[in-house]
Amino acid sequence: MLAIIIASAPLGFSNTYFYDVGVNAMFNAIVCVGLNLLIGYAGQISLGHAGFFALGAYGSAILTVTYGVPPIVAMLLSAAVVGLLAFVVGRPILKLKGHYLAMATLGIGIIIHIVLKTESKITGGPDGMSLDNFSMLGFTIMGDRMWYWVSGVLLVLTVWLALNLIDSPVGRALRAVHGSEVGAEVVGVDTSSYKVLVFVVSAVFASIVGSLFAHKNGFITPDIGSFFHSVELVTMVVLGGMASIFGALIGAVILTLLPQILAAVEQYEAMILGAIMMGTMIFMPKGLLPSIVSSVKRLGGGR
C-alpha cells in the first residue's frame, strides 16, 4: 500500500520542487522508522541521532571528495564506522535510563557537531563542503525525479525490514524490554545486547540517509548535526505515533511539509508550529496514527 501511495503521489506534483520536498520527507521517514525502533519499541530515547546522520553525510563527503572513494563504498564505509561508534558508546550509554539517557545521547550529538564545526581543514567548518552526485557502475542518480524513486524504493525496503524485525524474536524481546526491563531479564532476555543492537541499527539507518542526503543536496553544513535536528527527528517519531512504523512515517512527512506550508505566514510560523505540536500531543497523546486508529475502531465498535 505504501508503494502505491509513493507511486501515485507525484500525480499531484506540478514541478520538481514537490519532488524535492517528497525526497526530504522520505529521507526523514527512513531515519524515523529506524529511530522509532529505538524509541517506540525498545523504549530508549535518543537526542543525538542527528550526529549519526551528519557523520554519514560528512563521511561520504570527505571520502568521495578528498580521497576519491566511489560513493557507494564511501556510504557503506561511513555506515560501518557509525555503526561501530554506536556500538562502542551504546554499551555504557544504554545502561542509563530516561532523562539521563537523553542527556548522554544529547552530549554525544553535540560533541559530533562541535568536531564537524571546528575541524575546518577537513570538513570546511561552518561554511560547509560540497560534493558530487551519487554514481555507481556508470549510473548517476541526478535530478529530483530520480532521487524520488530511489528514496521511495529505499523507504519501502526500510519499512519492510522494520516490520520483519518487529515480528521476529528480536522484536518481541525489544517490546519486553520496553514493558519491563527487569521482567525481561528475569525471563532470560539479554536486554542490554538487544538495546545496543537496535541503537546500532537506528544509527546506521541515520548514517546511510545522511550520505544520500549529502549527495542529493550537493552541499552540507554542520547544522545537519545540530541538537535542533536531533530534537526534530524525535518529535517526528512521537508526533506520528510511537511503536508504530507507519506512525513514524506519517510524523516525518507532516513535519517535513509543515514548515514549507507555514513559510507563507512568515513571522507566525514558529507560533503555529509550536501550537500544532502542543495541540497534537495534548489531544492525541499516543501520537497521530495510533490515536486515529483507536478512535476509528471505537466508532466501528459502537455500531
Partner: peptide
C-alpha cells in the same frame, strides 16, 4: 540552516518561478 536554504532556493526556482534570486545571508 543550509539544508533549508537549498529547499527554499529550489522552491523559488521551481514553484515560484522567480526571475532572479537575492540572498543567502550567510556563507553556509
Amino acid at each position: 540552516a543550509g539544508d533549508k536554504a537549498s529547499t527554499f532556493a529550489k522552491r523559488l526556482i521551481e514553484s515560484d518561478k522567480v526571475d532572479l534570486i537575492i540572498g543567502g545571508s550567510t556563507t553556509g
